[in-house]
Design a protein around this nucleic acid. Structure first.
Length: 274
DNA sequence: CTTTCTGTTAGAAA
DNA sequence: ATTTCTAACAGAAA
């Protein structure tokens, strides 16, 4: 579910709620949410505290004072929730991991579909993991030159490339469709057929959509909430995603079409996107 | 009731 | 080597 803007919203909220709190205990209610054994996971983070929180693409990196890094990927339905002690009533059967802090607050990992995971890694392992990711729109290396270069010699469709985390890190199904829309390009057009000008427009659109969605604290289409339980407001700004059969808000003439492309539901206006 | 769809991506298959 | 498809899972919608 969460794409870059949602994960960034989670990161920012955790940054102001859990840093420098001592981890006093850990409860694993579903061990398949961990990438390693319960014993090893517990040993590596017990007694520590989080010093900083970073993110690449949709992956959260919670840096501990002992040098380890807790990686969290939310996949489709994962949530990281910050709970005060009195909010323990919110803990349900989908809440798989609880990290208890010395002030009685809790960082809870909840995940209905159980695709998400937590993994404690070393600095070296983190470096290798980051090697699998392309440029992140909120990092300094997301330049026009790097963007154009990432698309060089690729024969896939526009949408397939936008979704490829090895090229651009953080864009998912919702934002890929929105980016194509404001670029005036149909998602299934082949990238080798795009002009230099169109690729430049695409670069601008990526930054425009991602930055706006971050300002709106992400999109809640179904399950997503930030650590304080709040929904994202970008759902009200969506122009094509989830709007099949409705009129195009941009050109006022077309009707939003939905097709399956690159294995995903794909939405666009056939009138103002070419 | 059954079938289809869903914001992700690792790994298999082609 | 590169691109496409499927499985992992749970639940809502059709």
């Amino acid at each position: 579910m969460p794409e870059l803007p949602e994960v960034e919203t989670v990161r920012r909220q955790l940054e102001i709620s859990i840093l420098h709190k001592r981890i006093v205990s850990i409860e694993i209610r579903n061990k398949t949410s961990l990438r390693q054994s319960v014993a090893l996971f517990t040993k590596k983070i017990s007694g520590g505290n989080f010093e900083s929180i970073d993110r690449i693409g949709k992956l959260l990196e919670l840096k501990l004072n002992n040098g380890s890094i807790l990686l969290v990927h939310l996949k489709m339905t994962g949530q990281l929730l910050y709970l005060e002690n009195k909010q323990k009533l919110n803990i349900d059967k989908h809440t798989h991991v609880l990290i208890n802090f010395s002030d009685s607050s809790i960082l809870a990992f909840r995940d209905i579909r159980k695709f998400g995971y937590l993994s404690v890694v070393s600095a070296e392992e983190l470096r290798k993991t980051e090697d699998n990711y392309g440029i992140d729109p909120l990092r300094k290396n997301f330049t026009r030159e790097a963007f154009l270069q990432a698309f060089q010699k690729k024969k896939k469709s526009l949408k397939a490339l936008l979704l490829d985390q090895k090229l651009i890190a953080g864009i998912g199904n919702i934002y890929a469709d929105e980016i194509c829309h404001i670029s005036g390009l149909v998602p299934d057009s082949l990238v080798p057929g795009l002009s230099e000008k169109q690729l430049n427009t695409l670069f601008d659109s990526c930054l425009e959509i991602i930055n706006k969605a971050v300002r709106y604290k992400g999109t809640t289409f179904r399950d997503y909430v930030s650590p304080d339980g709040m929904k994202g407001n970008f759902a009200y700004e969506l122009k094509v995603y989830g709007r099949e059969g409705k009129n195009c808000l941009s050109c006022k003439n077309g009707i939003i079409t939905k097709i399956t492309h690159a294995g995903r539901g794909t939405h666009f206006c056939g009138v103002c996107q070419k």
